[in-house]
């Protein structure tokens, strides 16, 4: 029997709702986007940028910054909203999403978007590049960290596991992978398309120290990140149990919202209604 999609009842605070409302506004302007994939990620990225990563948005290439790669590049709506809020580029760019005169497209691009360390979009590229970053930091005895956000769907790619073997071999304790573990991919559940279970055991077998958290629980995410690296001789994996589309009930676990084209005014209204602050 194929396992049902997950349930998560963690409630979202005002900041999480506001970030999602901004994603909806970008969606409205661009007319398209990976909504479910972005909603799944909001708390992971929010905690990284609010509490964990070291950066200076006025000097995006500041050498001591932590390196961050959104390897599941299609979740970029959530990342763009945070980068704009932190001052990497003007907010006006958000409203030019996927437009010819904008810098923000359906996948993040290195060299075009301040704060983006690597162009992603084709899956399975982020972790190998991050291994290079982390090896370099160690070689240079630099203290900065390298963080990758991947997803369970992305982990279908063989290159993820080639890179995981390499990170494990080199005991890259300065490398952290957060996996948006929403058990959904484009066609169906991960259980049906390509079952990754036992997922945590796989990462452990590849040489990572692993913890699992509720990926929508800000306190749990903060707590786990505070303990990174979990083992001083291993790279870290945090499996973040999430809900694809989290925050709008009709989007949650709804595969039709993995990527949405030709979004209607009605749909935008419904999304914003779901994300309204309680009066």
């Amino acid at each position: 029997m194929i396992k049902p999609p997950p349930v998560n009842t963690t409630s979202l605070d005002a900041r999480s709702r506001e970030l999602r409302r901004r994603i909806v506004r970008m969606l409205e302007k661009g007319g398209r986007g990976h909504v479910g994939s972005a909603f799944s990620l909001v708390e992971i990225l929010r905690v990284l940028y609010d509490d964990f990563l070291k950066y200076d948005s006025r000097v995006p290439r500041w050498p001591q910054r932590d390196r961050f790669i959104l390897s599941k590049g299609h979740g970029c709506l959530a990342l763009y909203v945070l980068l704009a809020e932190k001052g990497f580029f003007p907010e006006s760019e958000l409203w030019k999403f996927c437009k010819p005169d904008g810098i923000l497209g359906g996948h993040p691009e290195y060299g075009k978007v301040p704060g983006i360390e690597a162009s992603t979009g084709s899956l399975g590229h982020g972790l190998p590049i991050a291994v290079g970053f982390a090896l370099n930091a160690r070689h240079e005895k630099a203290g900065h960290r390298t963080v990758v956000v991947s997803s369970d769907g992305e982990c279908n790619e063989g290159s993820v596991w080639e890179a995981a073997l390499c990170a494990g071999k080199h005991k890259l304790s300065n490398l952290t992978v957060l996996v948006d573990y929403n058990k959904q991919q484009s066609y169906s559940t991960t259980y049906e398309v390509l079952d990754m279970e036992p997922f945590a055991d796989k990462w452990r077998a590849f040489g990572f120290a692993v913890e699992e958290v509720d990926g929508h629980d800000v306190e749990q995410l903060r707590g786990a990140l505070k303990r990174v690296p979990f083992d001083s001789s291993k790279p870290t994996t945090i499996l973040c149990h999430t809900i694809k589309g989290k925050g709008a009930r009709f989007v949650e676990n709804n595969l039709n919202w993995h990527h949405k084209n030709k979004v209607t005014e009605e749909e935008i209204k419904s999304l914003l209604a779901e994300l309204e602050d309680p009066s």
């Binding site: 290195y110 190998p128 290079g132 930091a137 890179a163 390499c166």
Partner: peptide
């Protein structure tokens, strides 16, 4: 693991 070789080389080169 050639895919990883090229990716990690890119990471080093970007640094």
């Amino acid at each position: 693991s050639e895919a990883n070789l090229v990716g990690m080389a890119a990471g080093l080169a970007l640094e």
